[in-house]
Amino acid sequence: MAEEVSSQMNSLSISETNPSSSATISLVSGDDIVFKVEPTIAKEMETVQSFIDETDGKITTIPLPNISSHDLPYVIEYCEKSIAGKITKEFEAEFVKKLNNEEVKELFLAANYLNIKKLLDFLSQVIADRIANKSVEYVRRYFGIENDFTPEEEAKLREELAWTFTGVDPDDEDEN
């Protein structure tokens, strides 16, 4: 995993040494790593683009305190593919295969913060697919949700909905 991330960072720094336009945008992650991207990439990120627009393009270094240097390369990779019109089912399948549940969630929040509609829709579907057939307990753990039902309330509800508890996948504990 770590290797893949660094290889992506390398490819990014290559594009940095061959600037195709002068107005490269610097995105600064929450842990102070700078990622240089083409303006077309920034356009995909509505939050970033509106920041650039508001300052008439004078400011090209944009702090993204909510996004870590671990997540940002994934976001950039997705945006690059999107611009190139190369978002295929195969790409998407490969893309999420590398991500564990926690990473998917973080990326989902990043997509939300950056307001990248396509990535947000895609990750919603990924999370939905990952929880679809799971148990109630699994879902609580997945989202870090406290159960606030009394045991009686929960038992009653479970009884009413007993038929929805059939055919549920066993919880896989290796995910976190």
Binding site: L120, S124, Q125, A128, V136, V139, R140, N147, T164
Partner: peptide, 19 residues
């Protein structure tokens, strides 16, 4: 947003997640 993509049977089960 995520839950709106799920099937009805899963959604009904997830009513038991919390209030």
């Amino acid at each position: 947003e995520i839950l709106s993509l799920l099937k009805v049977k899963s959604l009904l089960r997830f009513k038991c997640v919390n209030k």
